[in-house]
Structures are given as structure tokens and as C-alpha cells.
Design a protein around this nucleic acid. Structure first.
Lengths: 187, 187, 187, 187
DNA sequence: TATGAATGAGCCTTCATTCAT
DNA sequence: CATGAATGAAGGCTCATTCAT
């Protein structure tokens, strides 16, 4: 699929012809379905969105405590990082592209906003549950968490971390977040 | 300069002609100095390396405590992020390129390794000074820190964070690291 | 219809798909009726031929004098030019195409020959009737008339003449032809 | 040259590659001089304009009578038609293109307007000289003359008239114009 | 008949690189 | 050192045509 190619060669290294060849179809046939390269990329983005939804391992949708939610956030990223690293490569490429192309920008913004809201609600929940410090600024905390998680993905891929290193870093980062947000750190 | 162009259009969007035009010289003249695009990029990388060294605000090279060093790490990134965001864009582009091109890969690896050693020594120093928990795995901690800081840069740029948001996130992330590595979190 | 498209975009600007879309049918359905573009153009030519026959305003087929016939020739062109300008655009396109494609060439030749014979007979009739000078070379006169009338169409369309200008030019050209062929100009 | 190709294959049949090949240069080399096909066509138009100026046989620029001027108008077209028929083909193609492309439209309009003004001044001069009827509407007369001359070119080329036929038609058309504008036809 | 999908051929254009001056 | 010109290779896209349903 196109996604693999993007992961392998980057967004701009994406060749219309190559995607077609990879899909086992003709150059023009791909143009029939995706009239332009832009459309093709939009298609990839939609596909990516759908694939991201299906984060594996989410335990049966049951409501969980904020602390567990937080831990889940890290763990699911870790799992995805190990099982579908290409997804992240494409995501990063997408983010870079978003800096230049407004259309991609919107899509990425929406995904980020979605994520931020989820994190925000988790943090607020934690505060209400009394397991997170009331002193933390929710928005800033969400920003830091997003940065941390994104950074884990980015560093893991570009730094070519080994699976074990990834697991440990993820676990430690989760612990760090818990400590930080938890009551022990009360100021 | 070429760097601005990379920051603006990305690495693959870098056009030989454009760089030449931007520099006010002829197409072929640039080829005279950098025979190939590869060389040009190498030039950019060297330039970037030199520019990164000059992190502004490093307070007079005096030896400092590990805690201060740690805080400095975050602060200097924050400053760079606000004053020279393009530097980071190029760095990220470089990291992505490193995944595909071995030459770039080596260069990026060296920079990362350099950085990791610095962080490692800081953490070890902190342990010796008795202000950091002895229980933390130094390597993992360094990894998490690198991920966090890279993530702050990545998220700040691709998420188009406002200066104030960046400052707060940086400060909060630094605090998070301190708490996490500090003795309060002793397990 | 295809003719409108030809008038709008020219013969080479004629796209199979566009014609199909205009006709509200599928790409392949048009291919079913006109297997190739060549066939499609032939179809257009036939359609054009039929449409040209129905020159409106021809007064009830009655035999008329040569002078009236001559005037009619101009008038009917003028009417067509005002009411169905696209017909002329296609005709001109066809003539140009005829220079390159022998098939079209034959068709156009036949139409021209048909027209020339009509003009020739009118001139001869005028001579017999004693209202046209005997000194004119019939063939040359026919040629000049054809050139004049074609030129009126060509100039009216490409020069974007206004209806009033067209009417006046047609009337004046008709007068010119009469004077020229008439006895007053006897040499 | 590109002009020959246009004359041979029409404007839309003009292939960038073919022009390059004809010029004995590379595909991309042509792009270097004419960045786009549009530019190439503009180049052709300029070239055409320059070539049209050099109407051969204009007798030494001396002022002549209106009648001679009128005759010259026809004769020079006749000469051009025999010696450089391709010039006319391109001109007709250009006129057709002008119906669709505004840029070409302007260029063609300017040439036509230039020509019209010349004809207008000749007719007015003739009236003043007392050799042309005062009754003719100058503008309409100019229009008819332009139509006639354009028609001669168009018909000669698309009808594949032989040189002799062209000469005769030109001569007869000139005579027709003289008679028509002359005093003999006084109404 | 009608159509969605597929395709080969070709065209314009871009780009890094080379070369003569 | 500098440059205008030239070029091969490749890429995205269009289009008439074909085919299975």
C-alpha cells in the first residue's frame, strides 16, 4: 500500500508510479481512482485515521480510573510503536507536511485536538478523583503529555531504539507522568 | 540560505536552483561549491552543527549542580525554540532523512550520542550528588529525557504552539523531570 | 452536443470524455456508438451537413433571377451567421482539419464543389439573362465570391463583429458583388 | 522552426518535443528558453508579427494614391500567399486560438486594429482624392475589405487553389473593390 | 446497450548535473 | 570563480481505447 511506501521513502519521495506498481495496477489506473497525487495523499490520511482508531489492546471499553487511563495512553502508544512503527513514520511525515500544506494542516489539527480533549478530560477526571494534584494547569499538562508521547514515538523511530529500550522508556515515562501528576509531588 | 529553504519547504522540497537563487548566485556557481545535492546537504548539516553549539544563554561555562544542569537542558531548548525555530525544523527533517540515508544517519547518530553522553553524565552526577534517586536506570532516564525534549520541539513546531504555551510547557516539563528524578519519588 | 464542444474548444480540444459527459452518458457508452474519435468527428460532419441544408429563409423554392439568387447567397449566410454562429466555427475548424486529414479533406471538398457549382450556374444564368457582364471569367468569379463569403464568416467570428456590423458588411458585400458583376462595370 | 510545425500540424497539434527535435535541441533545452508551451506560442506570435511587417515588394515606401494603395493591399497579400503560405496557415490558426485564449485574442486584435486603421485611412484618402464614392460607409467598407482579403487567404489555403487561380482571384477581387468603391458605381 | 474500471502511449514540465566560455 | 546554455532522466497527468460485467 501507499502507506508502506510513505513510511519507506517519505511523503515527497512518494512516487505515483511506485504506488501503482506496488498495488499491482497501472500508472493510469491509480490516476483513475485518485485523480491527483494530492488526492492520493488524502486517501492515505483517511486510511491512517481509520487505522489509528483501532488501537489494539484497549480493554473492552470499560470505564477506568484516570491513573489507569493515563497508563493506557502510554502503553497503547508503546504497543503501536512496536507493532506498527510505519504508522508513526507516516504520522510524523504528516505533521511535517502539515506545516506547509494547509489541507494536511487541518486534518492533523483535528486529530491533535481530538487527542488533547481526551487527555484534558482524563486529567480533569484525575483531579476530581483526588489522585492528581489540583495545582497542575490542565492545558499545560496535556501539552507536556502530548509532547512526551510524540517525542517517544519520534525518538524511538529516528533513534532506532530496540524494542526493549522502547518498552523501558515507555514504562518509565508513564511512571514519570504518574509521579508528576500524582499527589506525592504536591507543592 | 539553504537552511531557511529547508525549514520552509522541507528537505525534499529543497531545490538546487532555488538555493542558488536565494543566495543570489547562478545555478552553476552553486554546483561549483557543492558539486552535488548530497554535498550541499552535508554543508547544511555542518552549518547546523556549528549553529547548535552556540546555544545562547549558557551561563559562563561554570560548573553547576546536576539539578541546575538538567534545568538548563530544558531552558536552552526553550530559548532555541523561541529564537530559532527553523533550526528545529531542519533538525527534524534531518532526523527523518537519517532514517533513509545512511550518511545523514551517521551524522545524526553522532549528535544524538554526544547528547546522550552529556545527559548520562549529568544523571550520574546527580546520583553521586545524592539529589537524584539511585534507583533510576541511567540509560533509560536519558532516553526518556531525550524523547521528552525532542517531543517538546516537535510538538511546539508542528502544533504551532504560541510562545507562552511553549514557555509553560518547557517549565512544566523541567519540573516534571526534577520531581521524577528527585528523591521525593523514591521507591 | 459534440458540435457545441467543437465550437467552444476547437477540434483538437475535443475530448472524448467531455462529449460523453455533455451528452450525459458514460465514457464507454460513447465509444460504443462511435468506436473511435475519427468516427465521432465523421458523425459531427454528417450532422453538420444536414444542418447546413436547412438554411432557413430560403423563399419557397421558387425559381428566381440570378441577381436575386446572388443576393440570397449573401443573405442566407448572414442569417446563419447571426443565428447559428457555432456552425461556422465548426466549418472553419473542419476546413483547417481538412488541410491535414484527407478524409475530412474529401468531405470538405465535396461541399465546396457543390457550392461552387451552384455559384457557377447562377453566374452563367446571370450572363444568359443579360444582367451580368459576359466578360467575367465564371470560374474566377465563383472563386472570388466563395472567398468573400467565407471571409465574411471568418472575419465576423474571429473579429467578434457585432450583429449590426455583420448585417451591414453582408449587405455591402452583396451590393459590391452586384455592382461588380453587373453591366455598369462593363469594360 | 516552430512556425513550420504549426503550419503543418496546427496549433494544438504542436508538440513541445517535436519543436525541440526540429530545432535540433533537447527537450529540456527548449524548456530552458521557453519555460512553457504558452511561452513558446507567444514566441511564435512575436516572430510572426515581425515577419508580417516585412511584406516584400512594398515599393520603396513612397506615398501613393488611394487606388494604388488599395491595389497594393491585394497584391501584397497575393504575393505573401504564394511565397509564404504557411504564414497564413499560422495566422488562421492564431485567429481561431484567439477565440479561446484571451492573450492570443489581444495580440490578434491589435494586429487587426492596426490593419483596419490603415484601410480606413486609405479609404478616407480616396474619398478626399475624389476617386472613391463619398457614399460608402468607411468602417463598413473596411470590414468588407478585411473579410474579402482574409477570405482569399482562407479559401486559397483550405481550398488548395493553384497559384494561377490565386493570382486571378486576387486580381479580380482587387478590380471588384475598385469598381465598388469607385465613382462608376455612384448611387 | 450501458458502464466502471483498466491501460498504454504520450506529453509537458522539473531537476540535478555538465560543459564551454 | 562565475555563468548561460544544454541535457538525460524521470514524474505527474491526460486521453483514446478496451474489457468484463
Amino acid at each position: 500500500m501507499a502507506m508502506d511506501l510513505i513510511a519507506t521513502k517519505g511523503f515527497e519521495g512518494l512516487r505515483f508510479q511506485e504506488v501503482a506498481h506496488e498495488a499491482g495496477i497501472n500508472n493510469a489506473t491509480l490516476s483513475y481512482h485518485f485523480a491527483t497525487k494530492e488526492e492520493l495523499i488524502l486517501g492515505v490520511m483517511e486510511h491512517l485515521g481509520r487505522e489509528m482508531q483501532q488501537t489494539p489492546g484497549r480493554p473492552a471499553e470499560r470505564p477506568v480510573s484516570a491513573r489507569e487511563e493515563l497508563r493506557l495512553e502510554f502503553e497503547s502508544v508503546g504497543r503501536l510503536l512496536l507493532k506498527r512503527p510505519k504508522l508513526f513514520v507516516v504520522l510524523i511525515e504528516l505533521s511535517m507536511r502539515a506545516m506547509r500544506d494547509p489541507v494536511t494542516g487541518n486534518a492533523v489539527n483535528m486529530m491533535d485536538e481530538h487527542w488533547r480533549q481526551h487527555l484534558t478530560s482524563v486529567i480533569e477526571q484525575g483531579k476530581r478523583e483526588g489522585i492528581f494534584r489540583a495545582g497542575v494547569d490542565t492545558e499545560t499538562a496535556a501539552t507536556v503529555l502530548m509532547a512526551q508521547i510524540k517525542g517517544l514515538g519520534f525518538h524511538a523511530l529516528t533513534g532506532k531504539l530496540k524494542p526493549r529500550e522502547i518498552e523501558r522508556a515507555i514504562a518509565e515515562a508513564a511512571r514519570q507522568a504518574e509521579i508528576w501528576l500524582g499527589l506525592e509531588g504536591e507543592t
